[in-house]
Structure formats: C-alpha cells, structure tokens
Amino acid sequence: MTARMDRRFAALAAEGRPALVTYFMGGDPDYASSLAIMKALPKAGSDIIELGMPFSDPMADGPAIQVAGQRSLKGGQTLSKTIQMARDFRLEDADTPIVLMGYYNPIYIYGVDRFIEDALEAGIDGLIVVDLPPEMDDELCIPALSRGINFIRLATPTTDAKRLPAVLENTSGFVYYVSMNGITGSALPDPSLIGGAVRRIKDHTALPVCVGFGVKTAEQARAIGASADGVVVGSAIVNQIASSLTADGAATEATVAGVEALVRSLALGVRGARVAAAE
C-alpha cells in the first residue's frame, strides 16, 4: 500500500543520503503557477512533495504559511482543486510521493470516504493533518490506513517517552519530527539537540524520521540531514514564492524560477549531509 513512499526511501537509503521534502501551498498564488511549481520541484532535487491544503484558520502555522493560504483561497483554491493538482502532476511524474498537508475541517466537509477515494485515485501517497492527534484516529487515520494511504504523524519535543508509542502506533510512511515547540517558520533550534531527538524516535520505530519546522538554508538542511532520514523545508519556499509576486500578489517569471533555484541549493545541502557527517 505504501509502495511509492517505501520505494523512494529505499532508493535514498541505497544512495546513502536523506530525503529533501518540500512543502508548498496548493494554489498559491493561482492554480497554474502552483502546478508549475509542483512540477519543477522533483526536477530541482525534491524527493517528496508536501502539497499544502489551504485553511482559513491555520492554528499551527506562522505568518508565511498563513498568508500563503490566504493568497491561495483568494485565488479560488478548494480541496477539490488541490486533489486535481495532484492528479495533473501524476500525468507526468509517477514516482515522486505526494503528501497532502493541512487541517481537518475541509476534509471533514468534503466527506472522509469521498476524500480518501479521490485522493487514492489522484495518486496521493500520504496525509499530514495537523489537528488530528492519535486520540482522534477514528476520524481519518484508521479509514485512510485501511484503504492504503499513509498517515504521517507529527512527533514534537513535548511527545515524551510515555506518549511516543501511541503517536507511532498508527503512523506509516515516515514520522515527521517537529524540531521545536512552536509554529511553522520559527527559528531553528540547535541541530545537535535534534539529532538526539531523532535517535530517541528511531529507538521506537523502523520508519524513516524526517525533521521540519525552521529549516531555511542549504547549510541547515545539511546539518539536520546528518542525523535525519529527511529534511522538510516549507516556510522558506513559501517566502520565496511571496517575494517573487507583484504588489497585487500575481505570479511573475521569477516565481517558478526562484523556487527552482532555492530547491536546487537545498538539494545540494542534503546531498552533502552524510559526507559532512562522516568527516
């Protein structure tokens, strides 16, 4: 069921390097530009794509992703269009895993069964739903797992040893370790502390552990990638998109090109991670 995701992590393990996981907001600033960004990501070196589903009230996100969601909603994005974006992407890329990331309410209103059906058909491999902790597994996690979609859980610095097994129990695909207590796009804490946290999680699971929240530069990606199986970059990409827009928030020629350049540099960072660690 988790074939595409597992194949990708197996290939990376064979290459001996961590994954570069890139997040962007679906529909930011408009559908066509956003799809062009999505298609550019693997070509620039992204191994896994997190496709953001916009929500009016993103309570775990910092200003960058909040504003990206507002741009996207203003541009007419809906959950149905975000799923369509994955479908369009799959026409030319059958291998790069796609993870939908966002909040529960739009999925709940779309209808859980219909959502799982459509997501599978569109070639979506996993879900990250920020406001569904293990206590709420009956809502979406269990139905999604039973149909073959990965449910990727967030583990955080407050997830202690007692709680970790519960968090890992119904997790598949990979574990997303949130580097700090806070919202997306905050300052990155000391990478050496993160290494310890990643090892602690790996003691409890065979799943890959990817680290995100606060990774902005190739240098940070290299440092985090030394101990993690993957490095997630989100706000930096979203900020890059924001900086390329016109005053009215429209895409420019620099929109896709800017993301490509940033992702290429991040990809070099993760490719140097294990080399740096071995030195």
């Binding site: 775990a60 293990p134 206590e135 709420m136 955080t156 407050t158 997830t159």
Partner: peptide
C-alpha cells in the same frame, strides 16, 4: 467536542 489539536499541545 473532542480534542482536535496539534500533537505539541496533546500532552499538556
């Protein structure tokens, strides 16, 4: 009702 919150807040 329920507890629809981010993992960071769950232990608290």
């Amino acid at each position: 009702g329920g507890r629809f919150v981010a993992e960071t807040l769950m232990p608290l």
